[in-house]
Computed example of a mutant assay.
Amino acid sequence: MKRAVIFLALALTMALAGCGAKSIRTYDGPDVTRILVYKGDRKMYLMHGGQPLKVYNIKLGFDPVGPKQFSGDGKTPEGTYLIDRRNPNSQFHLSVGISYPNPQQMAFASEQGKQPGGDIFIHGAPNSGADVVGDWTAGCIAVTNADIEEIWSMVPDGTLITIYP
């Protein structure tokens, strides 16, 4: 009887532990060698050399015109960065980090007596279930949850990302 109770407790614990886990896809295709983002077109391209592998519709910061310069400005950065981290426990459905700000952007913000901001990601929808319409992020690049799962699996850390106006 005691063994049965222990067994049931362990089985229940393992079953519950898997309830919150996100299923991460795998990808076994051509390498993504670069990401190109065109803010004005609201498009993001995963590239293999000069060929696009995938194209995504994107949403941007709530004030998307112009480059991000300061914390809270609602702008999405412009320039070339690296994919430098990922967060499976994000407040959004997965997130892939962009290496903004660079040293020049940090120095400029400091000269202005401000902070450059940071924590810029490509991510999915809010886990809160909030309804989001139009450009809504604080400066990140938002895609659908299905898209971020695909991007997560296809894009390795260290990939270059260039964000154009």
Rank of each mutant, 00 (worst) to 15 (best):
C19Y: 14
N145Y: 07
W152F: 15
P88T: 13
V96D: 03
P103I: 11
K2H: 12
K114A: 14
E149S: 13
P165E: 15
V96F: 04
G158N: 02
I161F: 01
N127P: 01
F70W: 14
M154V: 09
A21M: 12
L46G: 02
P67V: 01
S71N: 08
P77T: 04
D63H: 09
P52D: 00
R34V: 00
G72D: 10
N57V: 01
A138W: 11
C140F: 09
I58G: 06
G18W: 09
K39C: 05
I83P: 05
T76L: 10
A138P: 00
G134A: 01
M47V: 08
R85K: 07
L160F: 05
N145I: 08
G72C: 09
D63S: 10
N102V: 15
G40W: 09
W152N: 08
F92W: 10
M106K: 12
V143A: 02
M14P: 00
K75D: 10
Y81M: 03
L8A: 15
G124S: 11
R86C: 03
S153K: 10
K43Q: 14
T13D: 01
F108A: 14
T162L: 03
V143D: 02
Y100F: 15
K22I: 12
D131P: 01
S110V: 02
S23D: 08
F62M: 05
S99M: 04
A9Q: 05
F70Y: 15
S128L: 10
